[in-house]
Amino acid sequence: MKIPSSEITPEHIYHARPQSRRRFLQTAGLVAGGALLSACAPSYVEPSPTPIKPEKPVTAGQTDELGDAITGYDAITNYNNFYEFTTDKQAVARLSAGFVAEPWKVQVGGLVNNPKTFDLDELRKITPVERIYRMRCVEAWSMVIPWSGLTLNRLLKLVDPKSEAKYVRFETLLDPTRLPGQRDRSFPWPYVEGLRLDEAMHDLTILATGIYGKPLLPQNGAPIRLVVPWKYGFKSIKSITKIELVADEPVSLWMKSGPSEYGFYSNVNPDVSHPRWSQSSERRIGEVIRRRTLMFNGYADQVASLYAGMDLRKNY
């Protein structure tokens, strides 16, 4: 087994990056708390719009805050779970190549004071962020991905959720002509996912529009997708057309098709087993040896408080 040299973190980066990232994440937690308190504040005015542009180009060898090297672009764009195209992870890239993701509209509504439909340019004007996150698939493999996009809380504040809004419901484009996998009737299309409002407002939760500083490719959920790094990958719904604030817990596609296997929360949890895959360990793509899976995918310091007092075995 050969690991390309680009996958190995140079020592100076290994030692230098984690500290600053960790400090960033600590403040991120505080910011998220503040965001929560202001969630119901009157409509939010977006300051100085700036176009999405990576602060610095993403390069192989960069690491996340734990010192894990980012996964190669080729792996990220050629090993995908996107059942709207095919269930074959390797074939998604090929089958999605002709998918046209522009123009695109994201309808944000439901229990909000200012429902609004955003086009991509409007979304790009919302303060851009760059995040390197671990992505842990429920199938027990993982990657480290450099995302660009916007925090979901910024978008939600623009539409101003009403006080009755307790959850956020997301929907993928429903169009079997463009997403041929949706002709497979064994799934209750469209893909639906949901978050509790506090999870959605958490600063770690982003809507991604790019990877490696480049616009998202169709196989990764172009043009805009959710990224919730402490939950299994399937929660991070792709190619979103609809975001709705709702009062009741949304029923996701996976909850509908396998209620005993997939719960609403789907937090990465090495102690809660899944009938098919080991959740206590995982294979990082590019590595041979399994590594132990971390509670909340390593984001416990930032998100564990969201679930204080909850039985995570029941709320899986």
Binding site: S273, P275, S278, S280, S281, R283
Partner: peptide, 19 residues
């Protein structure tokens, strides 16, 4: 190869995964 004879992990899987 996959589990590198990590029997604690293998035992976990054996106990929880009927397949």
């Amino acid at each position: 190869v996959d589990y590198r004879f990590a029997f604690d992990l293998i035992w976990d899987d054996l106990a929880t995964k009927r397949y």
